[in-house]
Computed example of a mutant assay.
Amino acid sequence: MADLHEISFPQEWGPTPLADLKASVSLEGGLNMLDVRWAIAVDSTIQNVKGIEIDTSQETFKCEYIPSLAEAFPGGLIPGKEQIWFNYRINVFPASYYLVQACNLPQTPTENGSPFKYQMVRPPIRTTVDTAPYITTPAPPPVPVPVGLIVGLMVAGLALLLFGLVTYRMVSARLAAGFQKVAMGPKVPVLVVYPAGGAEFQGAVVALAEFLQQHGGCSVEVDMWQQGSVAKLGPMRWLLEQVQTAHRVIIVAPQPSSQRSPQKPPFPGVSGPPAAAQDLYLLALNLVAARAVNGAQLAKFWVVRFGATGPLTSELQACRTFTLMKDLNKLCRGLRRQRYTKIADLLTWRADCCGRNDSEKLRAAIQALHGLPTHDGAAP
């Protein structure tokens, strides 16, 4: 294969797409070695390929081919071959999984808006054998417990239970309006990810993000509000950074096209989804699949459905799911549990997180998505 060395490329060079990408991880001498393989289509455009960009989520490499492909393949075509493969080996830090993205240099947008191809790979499981001998010690005989002690413990337990119940009712009555106090507390960091959809679906996503930001006690991050950061970092790196800092990642389930209502006017002020929305959604599904074996990591990912959306994908079926508008208060209460710091907050967790006026815009957006009339009988 052609040798590689790092180089920067001027942006005025013409673009060419990458054909395929594969990655694998092996253990060598206690180190994780990431093997990246990629393919370039063998046609007239191969002479326009100047180099390759590889991002491992830990480090980014920009390299050029030496000799150049234009010199190595002056005719552009190779009889009997549709593509040619290259490979590059990288020493990476230990991780539970690696998300690799790569593209030909110079970059060019494709039909879905991204020049990158993605590959998720998990390292082999490290195994150790414990050869230490085990010594079995016989268990001591059970010591009988006096009946009087058992009765005393039961009476004391009932007294504590009664005291706690009375205290709970007294304090919760005084804190019936305590949610306003809770709402002034620290915001819960939340990331919202969604698939690309029509104007009504996009309007419902915007309404959900605005509701959580304004009335749900959340600090919401969503790609449509940070398109500059997404373009600067790339979809994969931006998503990984947001997932790391978020307390909850809310994935909006896709809406079947049969339930959209194209004859209705779009939701006011809402345009189509950003170019990276679908890439971020697919990357989020990969993250869920990678963490499916770890219940604690999977618990960070929640699914929100705008009414009946049909069967969920296999990646999302293991996540906790909320259906709006039915489960809106349940969703808010679940998010509020992330910031409890006082007993007063714990005693008010059953209170409704919002009134009907607070959620009216979200309700109208979901009704428009399903082609239903709003409260005033007209589409929003």
Rank of each mutant, 00 (worst) to 15 (best):
A368D: 15
S172Q: 13
T60L: 09
G198W: 00
L99S: 08
A253I: 04
P268T: 06
G80K: 03
A70P: 11
S271W: 12
Y98S: 00
A378I: 06
F301A: 03
G51D: 13
P235I: 12
D55H: 02
E360G: 00
G310L: 03
L282E: 06
Y134T: 12
A299S: 14
L362M: 11
R305P: 01
A39I: 00
F322Y: 15
L21K: 10
Y98E: 00
A284H: 07
Q255D: 05
S172M: 10
D3L: 10
E71C: 01
E315F: 02
A351N: 09
M224E: 09
I135L: 11
H370Q: 04
Q297T: 00
S8C: 04
I251L: 06
G164I: 05
A365F: 10
M154F: 15
D43I: 14
V25Q: 04
P273M: 05
Q119W: 08
Y97I: 08
L191S: 05
R336N: 10
K264R: 14
M236C: 08
V121T: 15
I251K: 13
V100D: 05
Q226D: 10
N294S: 06
L369V: 01
G148M: 06
D3H: 09
M154E: 10
P10K: 06
Q338T: 07
S229L: 12
S8W: 10
Q101K: 02
Q297R: 03
T374N: 15
P311Y: 02
W238I: 10
I251F: 05
C353M: 06
P186K: 01
P115A: 10
L285N: 03
G272I: 11
P311Q: 02
N329Q: 15
Y118S: 04
C103E: 02
Q180P: 02
D327Q: 09
V121S: 07
Q101P: 00
T110D: 02
G152W: 01
Y118G: 02
A231W: 12
T127C: 09
V270W: 04
D43H: 08
S96L: 05
Q58V: 10
Q202N: 13
P268I: 06
C63L: 02
L283H: 06
E210N: 11
Y134G: 01
F163I: 01
L324V: 09
L149I: 04
L99K: 08
L77K: 00
A277E: 04
L27Q: 14
R339P: 05
A276I: 06
P123C: 07
Q278I: 09
Y134W: 04
Y118V: 09
G76E: 01
P67G: 07
K187S: 10
N104Y: 00
E210M: 09
A23W: 04
C218N: 07
V230L: 11
S8Y: 08
K50C: 13
V190G: 12
L99G: 08
D223P: 13
L69S: 09
D352Q: 12
V205S: 13
V121W: 12
